[in-house]
């Protein structure tokens, strides 16, 4: 089940803000690691920021195979 558009947009806003990317360059189907250009430690920091912003816990094993913002939003929707 796809995540609500509002959740996807909030996720894209948060990613653009924290990692200094122009919001318009981030799209739901973009590869989130490539488009943010973040390393493994920054990826873990992103996880902490997402948990804080969406008030949910996201165990790493839920993220296996997740590469896009839309995919990540779907996981968050199921957890939040």
């Amino acid at each position: 089940m796809p995540a609500p558009a509002t959740l996807v947009n909030r996720l894209l806003d948060l990613a653009a803000q924290h990692y200094g990317r122009p919001r318009e360059t981030l799209t739901p189907d973009a590869d989130l690691f490539k488009s943010l250009g973040i390393d493994s430690f920054q990826a873990l920091d992103l996880l902490s920021r997402l948990e804080e912003a969406f008030s949910c816990e996201i165990p790493d094993y839920e993220l296996q195979g997740v590469t896009t913002f839309a995919g990540l939003a779907e996981i968050i929707a199921r957890r939040a």
Binding site: L44, L47, S48, E51, E52, E57, P59, D60, Y61
Partner: peptide, 10 residues
């Protein structure tokens, strides 16, 4: 057993 990471709130 999961190798998961745990954030500060948890």
């Amino acid at each position: 057993l999961t190798g998961r990471t745990l954030g500060a709130p948890r």
